[in-house]
């Protein structure tokens, strides 16, 4: 174990971790926003809307995240949309997460007992009222575990942003290795940093689950 490299790496990886946090917070925010909107869209009465949402989700689930990242960073400029690497990374991660969150929301709401829908209909509620006032409030608790899983995937996926030169945790570690040739120690440290971050997320999720009422 090369302890001198480890000592040297701690603050550098700390900076990388901060960068990872920045990217992930932004991506989680936008991803959830879009994901919730798409989730409602998946339950729309209009077939065209449902189809469009499903096609989007299909694409996001059917292509690797790394390819999606490259598409946003290298391919979009060809049609005039040129992001810098930070926003390209946030965009790619958000778009990816939104697809999965949409699915989580859709299946969460569709798993609610059909009787709830019929009761709402029988007192004259319209479809959008049923979704908003009856399905969505009850789906929350079911959604939290798979939602957390998706957010954890997002954090791990942020490691791939190193491929488009985003200076996040993995990239920071790679640079140390390229200079000091200590892959074992550095990759182990990187793993520990990610583990700590994700454990925090998982703890938060369990806390939320306990707090949310059980229907």
């Amino acid at each position: 174990m090369d302890w001198s490299v480890i000592k040297l790496a701690v603050p550098i990886l700390g900076v990388g971790l901060l960068a990872t946090l920045k990217v992930c917070f932004a991506a989680i925010f936008f991803g959830m926003l879009l994901g919730v909107v798409l989730g409602f869209g998946a339950l729309s009465r209009l077939r065209a809307v449902r189809f469009a949402v499903l096609a989007y989700v299909d694409f996001v689930r059917g292509t690797p995240l790394l390819v999606q990242i490259f598409l946003v960073y290298f391919a979009l400029p060809v049609i005039g949309v040129n992001f810098d690497e930070y926003w390209a990374g946030v965009t790619a991660l958000s778009l990816n997460a939104a697809g999965f969150i949409c699915e989580i929301m859709r299946s969460g709401m569709q798993s609610i007992d059909r009787g709830q829908i019929e009761a709402a209909q029988s007192i004259g509620m319209r479809h959008r009222q049923v979704v908003l006032h009856v399905l969505f409030p009850q789906a929350w608790r079911r959604i939290v575990p798979p939602l957390t899983n998706e957010l954890i995937s997002l954090v791990k996926g942020s490691a791939m942003l190193s491929a488009i030169s985003v200076y996040e945790l993995t990239h920071a570690g790679q640079e140390i290795i390229a200079t000091y040739f200590a892959p074992f120690e550095i990759f182990l440290m990187i793993a520990l940093y990610y583990y700590a971050l994700i454990s925090l997320l998982a703890w938060l999720s369990r806390y939320l689950e306990r707090r949310l009422p059980q229907y």
Binding site: R45, D113, G115, Q116, E118, A119, A120, Q121, S122, I123, G124, M125, R126, H127, V134, P137, Q138, P213, Y215
Partner: peptide, 23 residues
């Protein structure tokens, strides 16, 4: 949908399984 749901208000319906809003 608007017209149908308006008509539905004129009926009350009580289900075998109650179907109260759980939340």
């Amino acid at each position: 949908e608007v017209q149908l749901t308006q008509q539905r208000r004129r009926f009350g319906f009580v289900f075998q399984r109650f179907n109260l809003f759980a939340h």
